[in-house]
Simulated scan of single mutants.
Amino acid sequence: MRVTALVVLVAALTGCSLWSGGSAKPVPADLGANVAVLGVRQAWTARVGSVSGLPLEVHAAGNVVTVASAEGVVAAIDARTGGDIWRTALGEPLSAAVGSDGKSAAVVSRSNALIVVESGRERWRENLASQVFTPPLVAGGRVFVLAADRSVSAYDAATGRRLWAQQRPGEPLVLRQAGVLLAVGDTLVVGLSGRLVGLNPDNGSVRWEAPIASARGTNDVERLVELVGRTSKVDDSVCARSFQTVVGCVNTARGTVAWTQPASGAEGIHGDADALFGVESNGTVVAWRRNDGSRLWGSDRLKHRKLTAPLLLGRSVVIGDDAGLIHLLSRTDGAPLNRVATDGSGIAAAPVVAADTLVVVTRNGGIYGFRPD
């Protein structure tokens, strides 16, 4: 059978590698008693509807957290209170959610429509030629879209007029999860296969390319290479994970790779100027030194618990798991600081912070806000 782009979509498995061969499900590590070294309290809860099957990213801008459900409910939540700023039901299921600049929110439907909402009202929609799993980027009065066929396009945020499109070749398999799409200064940075690519946001022209990972192997599955969100951006440094192969950092001012290190995870990374944090597919939590990629520590305390990408928040590395628990680990050595429960349906996306509130969304659509005691 001839395999072409978008004929086969590979879902990222957070609990095991694609190459594992279907062995018995491993037993999650015993957590032991929770000793609350760092006090955390639940401040509020809200709901958005089930997000199961949706490659959701929760967007935080100022005091506003924007979320979406798999069936097309989009809501802007006040992170200070948990109350709605606005909410709308688009009436059709989504394939990518959600990008926002705090004013406008953009999602993509399963019927390949780019939909922009402002203050709870649909402003415009535009049909796309390909499926999308990466939340659109809303920035500088434009909406940028990274599609599953590795095309990148820009639209006027006010009118929906397409401004430009850039098509790049790539391997025939793609991941059914969010990729890399962010603004760094005056450059649009995009993950295309195993490369970070800097584009001129005004016309889509290529400014630089930095290869973090390259395709290897003898068949399409073995050659699968893709950068996955979330990323860590500090000044001109952008660090990202290539699915099941490496973690690496790029200097976006020069368009060069600073370093890469082997890593076998499927979720993105987070960090600051000193350190990066990530989770491997077996649940090992790893910290790397940002300037050279050397390993700082690793922890197996959450092994086989199907973890989200982490959030570095003060002294804590915050990670959600498949049982709906939020784990706060010490950034210094991975020691447990606290853990808190949600509704038990599993954490659907990497945690975010807004208005001094830690916000998480569960697969059942529960939205939880936590604050320090």
Results as ranks from 00 to 15, higher is better:
Y155H: 12
A29N: 00
G39H: 13
A178W: 09
V73A: 13
D373N: 05
L163T: 02
L328Q: 03
Q166P: 05
V7A: 14
E267D: 08
P351V: 00
R301P: 02
D84F: 10
R168H: 14
V361W: 00
A349Y: 10
S119D: 09
E71M: 02
V143P: 12
G141T: 11
G298Q: 08
V116D: 07
G72F: 02
A147C: 14
R80Q: 06
A89L: 12
A165I: 14
H327N: 00
T218I: 06
V145N: 14
G194T: 11
A61S: 14
Q167S: 15
L9D: 10
I347R: 04
G255N: 09
V360W: 03
I367A: 03
Q42S: 04
A129W: 10
N251Q: 13
D101Y: 03
R150F: 10
V318K: 00
A12D: 11
L54V: 01
V197G: 15
G204E: 09
T134P: 13
W19V: 12
C249Q: 02
W259A: 06
V221M: 10
A154F: 11
S299K: 02
T362W: 04
I85S: 02
P136Y: 10
G314T: 00
P351D: 00
N251T: 13
T218D: 13
N200G: 13
A75K: 06
W208Q: 03
V10G: 10
Q42F: 06
T362F: 08
I77D: 01
G204W: 11
H304Q: 02
V197H: 09
K233C: 15
V107E: 07
F277C: 05
V184G: 03
A70R: 01
N63R: 15
S104V: 13
S264V: 12
S214L: 09
A287V: 14
G32I: 00
L358G: 01
T45H: 02
R162M: 09
V279K: 04
E122W: 04
E209A: 08
G248S: 05
V221I: 10
G170Q: 10
P262S: 05
V35R: 07
G21K: 01
G83L: 09
S109V: 00
V247L: 14
G141C: 10
V206R: 09
R223Y: 08
Q166R: 14
V360M: 01
T81L: 03
T342S: 04
T134W: 15
L9W: 10
D235H: 15
V359L: 02
G204I: 07
F133W: 15
